[in-house]
Design a protein around this nucleic acid. Structure first.
Length: 270
DNA sequence: ACAGTAACCTGTTTGC
DNA sequence: TGCAAACAGGTTACTG
C-alpha cells in the first residue's frame, strides 16, 4: 500500500499522539508478519518513552532510550490511533498502548514488519544498504546517471530499486516518468544525464506534492485518523488506463514491467 | 554483478 | 450468478 508519502503522512499523523508518551503495554495478536515479531518486544518496549519518530525510506523508527522500534507497512499495513478500549478488528495484529490512546498496527496481507533493535538502526540488515533519500540533496540526476552506467534494466524498476534511491514505489515511479517524458521500458544505461536531472527533479516534486496532500488512497490507505489521502485526484497516469493523456489526449496504456503494472502515454514518453 | 522470477499473504476485482 | 483467475501501494531471496 504505502509509498514514501503515505509513510511520511503516517509519521506526521501519529507523532503528536506518541511523542513523550510512555508505553503502558504491548499486545501481539499475530506475530507472523514478513519476519516474526520478536517474542520479547513487550519486555523491550514496556515503560519506554517514545522520544521521536524518524523515517528512513519506508521504515518508521520509534526512538527510545533502550533502542528502536522499526515498523514497515508493507503492501497493506496501516497505523492508527484508537481509543484504549477499542475492540480489535480482523488483522489488527499489534497494539502499543499509551496512557491516553493506543497505536494499532493493521495489516491484512502481513507483508509488513515490526522489529526491535538495540543497536544503530541504520546499521540494521534491512536498512544498511539503502540508497539516498529522494528528498535529500544527495539525490540528484548525476546520482541516477552514475549508477545507471552499463545497466540494461528498464528505467522503471531501476528507480524502484531501494539501493539506487528509496521511497519510489509503483505509483510515483509511473507518475515521475510521465512528468519526465521517459518511457518506463527505456534501458537505464541509455538515458542522458540531462534527462536524469529532469527525472530526479520530478521525483522530488511528485513526492513532495503527494505528502502535502496526505498521500494517495486507492483502496485502503488511511491516515492515523482514518481519513484518506487526496493525491489520488492528482494522478496523471497511474490507474488511468484508457483515460486521455493530460497532455496529448491519447489513451493511457498499461503494461506489466518486472511483475508490476506500469502506466504511461506512448505518445509523450520515449 | 546483473537480470529475471518466485515467494511471502489476504481481499477484491475481473472475466468466463 | 458463480467460480476461478488475476491483481493489489513492497521487498527479499533465489535462479541462471
Amino acid at each position: 500500500m504505502p509509498e514514501l508519502p503515505e509513510v511520511e503522512t503516517t509519521r506526521r499523523g501519529i507523532t503528536p499522539y506518541v511523542i513523550k508518551q510512555q508505553v503502558q503495554n504491548v499486545v501481539i495478536r499475530q506475530a507472523s508478519l514478513r519476519w516474526p515479531v520478536p517474542l520479547n518486544l513487550k519486555q523491550k518496549l514496556k515503560d519506554q518513552t517514545i522520544k521521536d519518530i524518524q523515517r528512513r525510506a519506508k521504515y518508521l523508527l520509534f526512538v527510545t532510550q533502550a533502542g528502536h522500534l522499526i515498523i514497515h507497512l508493507g503492501m497493506s499495513g496501516s497505523l492508527r490511533m484508537v481509543k484504549n478500549k477499542a475492540i480489535p478488528n480482523k488483522h489488527d495484529h499489534i497494539d502499543i498502548v499509551f496512557n491516553k490512546k493506543t497505536l494499532r498496527f493493521h495489516d491484512p496481507r502481513r507483508f509488513g514488519a515490526v522489529l526491535w533493535t538495540s543497536k544503530d538502526p541504520l546499521q540494521h540488515k534491512l536498512l544498511k544498504n539503502l540508497g539516498p533519500e529522494p528528498l535529500s540533496e544527495e539525490f540528484t540526476g548525476a546520482h541516477l546517471h552514475q549508477h545507471a552506467q552499463g545497466k540494461k534494466i528498464n528505467v522503471k524498476p531501476f528507480i524502484m530499486n531501494a539501493r539506487i534511491v528509496v521511497g519510489v514505489g509503483n505509483i510515483y515511479a509511473s507518475e515521475s516518468l510521465f512528468l519526465s517524458g521517459i518511457h518506463p521500458q527505456r534501458s537505464a544505461g541509455r538515458i542522458s544525464l540531462a534527462r536524469y536531472e529532469i527525472l530526479a527533479e520530478n521525483i522530488k516534486q511528485v513526492l513532495t506534492h503527494a505528502i502535502e496532500l496526505g498521500g494517495t488512497t486507492l483502496r485502503d490507505f488511511v491516515r492515523e485518523d482514518g481519513k484518506p489521502g487526496y493525491f489520488a485526484n492528482k494522478l496523471n497516469v497511474y490507474n488511468q488506463t484508457g483515460m486521455p493523456c493530460p497532455i496529448c489526449k491519447n489513451p493511457i496504456k498499461v503494461r506489466t514491467i518486472s511483475q508490476r503494472s506500469s502506466f504511461f502515454c506512448v505518445q509523450c514518453q520515449h
